[in-house]
Design a protein around this nucleic acid. Structure first.
Length: 293
DNA sequence: AAGCTGGACAACCGCAGATTC
DNA sequence: CGAATCTGCGGTTGTCCAGCT
């Protein structure tokens, strides 16, 4: 072969393209449990048919709990422009000055907004008016920031809930809860700038549990008093154990293995709840989680 | 209503530097 | 010390979607 380097992975054996809900869950729960000491071996250990680099990117850009999403503030944009003018396209350096922002996101914002604005000398504070006139962009950003349906159950606003996917990924997850139509209706209501609400109850700690208890603070207005935490941990544990079972992440459990096998023929059967005695997410929790995106 | 166009952004690719053996 | 491997970075591409014709 001469110069160059071996590919990081066998591209014929790894999945590419958009991440699915289940893949996000697998990656998130694996990293929360074991960390990410070795990206190369992580996919295999986590049961993901993905390249290590792809996992890393997905985690850093979308699944990390501290990723901030939504519109860039004027201050952030000013910072980007200043830094770009002083250090150039060192996106990771720029990102390090903007907590919660990723280099990829900053790079995208630069190429889609700031570069043009700079070249046309449009003032920064014209941004939002201008953006409002910009087709598509603001709408996406608004929903992303305020109540992104994308973010609702995707651990980070991924593209996994594009319209056509609602029928697949969300359908899988929610069909048992209220009926898929109810959920899509809720998603549509998001456009009316209402907070996304999920019409079922949840253990309030489940999201922080999934994402690592250190990563998420309790929501400020959480309806879940800390005093209930202990009594709820069993339920959280059940929920999480079931999740792992469905994803094939658990160490071993005969009964659950059987259950898992029963669903194995169709990956879309995972996370069904008709046989799942799980705590379900509450409106408040989903709303808070969504707001964080 | 259907097709086209351009913006936005997630994901991929390949290189370079750092680290390990 | 050099080769192999891993990680991070920046550039680029692919896909989706809203608005326009």
């Amino acid at each position: 072969m001469g110069k160059g380097r071996a590919p990081c992975c066998d591209k014929t054996k790894v999945k590419r393209g958009p991440w699915s809900y289940e893949e996000d869950l697998k990656l998130t729960s694996f990293i929360n449990k074991y960390g990410h000491e070795n990206w190369r071996s992580l996919p295999e250990q986590a049961g993901l048919l993905r390249c290590g680099k792809s996992c890393r990117l997905r985690w850093i850009n979308y699944l990390r709990p501290d990723v901030k999403r939504g519109n860039f503030s004027v201050e952030e944009e000013e910072t980007i422009i200043k830094l770009y003018q002083s250090i150039g396209s060192k996106w990771s350096k720029i990102a390090s000055k903007l907590p919660g922002r990723t280099d990829n996101e900053i790079k995208n914002v630069w190429h889609t907004h700031l570069k043009k604005r700079l070249s046309s000398n449009t003032p920064l504070n014209a941004n939002h008016g201008e953006a409002a006139a910009t087709k598509g962009s603001l709408k996406r950003e608004e929903t992303s920031q305020e109540s992104s349906p994308n973010a609702s159950m995707s651990f980070g606003g991924s593209n996994i809930l594009r319209k056509e996917d609602k029928g697949v990924e969300l359908g899988k997850t929610f069909e048992y809860l209220q009926g898929y139509n109810d959920f899509t209706r809720m998603l549509e209501e998001v456009d009316e700038r209402e907070l996304l609400e999920i019409p079922f109850d949840v253990d309030p700690n489940i999201w922080s549990f999934i994402n690592g208890s250190e990563s998420f603070q309790q929501p400020e207005n959480s309806l879940a008093p800390m005093a209930h935490q202990d009594s709820q941990e069993d339920e959280v544990g059940k929920w999480f154990k079931h999740l792992e079972s469905e994803l094939g992440l658990e160490e071993n459990d005969g009964q659950q293995q059987q259950h898992s096998d029963a669903n194995k023929d169709s990956s879309s059967s995972s996370l069904r709840a008709r046989d799942t005695p799980l705590m379900k997410p509450s409106r408040t929790q989903i709303t808070d989680y969504t707001r964080r995106m």
